[in-house]
Amino acid sequence: MATETLRNNRVGPILRAGDVAKAAVQAIERDNPGKAIHIDDRTAYIRVECDDECLLTRASMELALGRPFEMREIEISLGSFSGNIDTSPECIRFYFNKHV
């Protein structure tokens, strides 16, 4: 188990359950076309991950929520994340530097 999980390349947000988490799943599917999205629902939180890089844009969040959304609002739901993070007002990027 230990070795196997170590060798994954999954990155992405781990969101507290709620509307924003549900919207983020839709948004991530839209923002990462062609990528397999791994969703792991643990009741209180949900892991939304894809390999190497995972993008989440403000525009997609607004589409999914059907209301204006500031990128900073994601922090209220962002319990944790896998990989590294880069934030900007339009997009959040989760990524690894190295592929294993």
Binding site: M1, A2, T5, L6, N8, S82, N84, F96, N97, K98
Partner: peptide
């Protein structure tokens, strides 16, 4: 295994 072995140690490796 989820948080420490899968997530944190993978992060160590990446850095």
């Amino acid at each position: 295994e989820e948080w420490i072995i899968g997530q944190f140690v993978r992060q160590l490796d990446d850095l």
